[in-house]
């Protein structure tokens, strides 16, 4: 075989592999959407679930998923921002930094069901918070922190060194340079990472089964006082999310149309995650243009 033939063979092989990957993805997406979308209706999206059979709409679960996502991000973004800035700019290259990096790597490879059980034992049982939005949000934070920290660190490190020198040479402090010069340039990458991790958090189930719980008590959407027990904003109420609902309907759903219900809920979940991915791209590109080019 000569070089040209080898090259041809390699090109064919690579193309086939890529086609297989893309094909599987499209098959999965199409299957979920085609089997689920016909059962999605407005009353399904906004209705409440019968707590015994699991039949009915997913309104509360959908809200719970978003609420949990917002809470998780509120907790994890500030922490990972601090950790990312520290690792990218302040950490010296020594054993302590290596230890922190390995700790983050280990944390990111923890199975989510282990994170869930840990959250269950610590927050739900030990701290007696019970199955609640806040327990779920903290468990998801553990799950989310390593990835976000890594993403922020990498976005910051990608900013050229000479930008830091420019700031310092003008007599700006390191902190001022970091916040005013480096962070804005890194922002598009950070935002993209945050939105992508939001998609992961949104679809997470295993870590939530034991922390946020598997029940979606009917909430009063007219009551926005987070202190009230029936308020959707109450962080101490149990909150079954969409992903947990799908799992539950599939394993112990008693409704006659359980298969259709889970297919429809899966389609909604997939669409939401696709929207996050799309949003990440659009927002990232927009911010990049905003920051680099002029307004």
């Amino acid at each position: 075989m000569n070089a040209k033939q080898k090259d041809f063979l390699a090109t064919i092989t690579i193309n086939v592999i890529v086609a297989a990957v893309v094909g599987i993805l499209f098959f999965l997406l199409a299957y979920i959407l085609i089997s689920g979308l016909p059962h999605v209706s407005w009353s399904f999206l906004t209705g409440t679930t019968d707590s015994f059979s699991g039949a009915g709409g997913i309104g509360v679960q959908l809200f719970n998923s978003f609420y949990l996502l917002v809470l998780t991000m509120l907790i994890s973004i500030p922490i990972s921002l601090g950790a990312g800035i520290y690792l990218a700019e302040y950490a010296k290259d020594n054993w302590r930094t290596h230890l922190i990096r390995s700790a983050i790597e280990v944390l990111s490879s923890l199975p989510s069901v282990v994170v869930g059980l840990f959250g269950f034992l610590l927050f739900v049982v030990k701290f007696k918070i019970g199955f609640s939005v806040i327990s779920g949000a903290i468990a998801l934070t553990f799950f989310n922190l390593p990835l976000l920290t890594r993403n922020i660190e990498e976005s910051l490190s990608a900013v050229p060194r000479n930008q830091r020198e420019a700031g310092l040479s003008l007599g700006m402090s390191k902190w001022k340079t970091e916040i005013g010069i480096i962070l804005p340039v890194a922002l598009p990458g950070i935002v993209t990472g945050v939105v992508l991790s939001a998609g992961r958090v949104f679809g997470e189930a295993a870590a939530l089964i034991y922390t946020a719980g598997q029940s979606a008590p009917v909430t009063n959407f007219a009551d926005w006082n987070p202190m009230d027990a029936a308020s959707p904003l109450n962080p101490l109420r149990p909150a079954e999310t969409l992903a947990v609902h799908i799992w539950k309907v599939n394993t112990e759903g008693l409704a006659n149309n359980a298969a259709q219900l889970s297919a429809a809920a899966s389609a909604v979940l997939i669409i939401a995650v696709l929207l996050f991915n799309l949003g990440a791209r659009v927002l990232g590109n927009y911010l990049y243009r905003r920051v680099t080019a002029s307004k």
Partner: peptide, 13 residues
């Protein structure tokens, strides 16, 4: 003050 080898304006106006 200092000016560097490669121009390094900030990504600002």
């Amino acid at each position: 003050g200092m000016v560097f080898q490669r121009p390094n304006p900030f990504s600002k106006s």
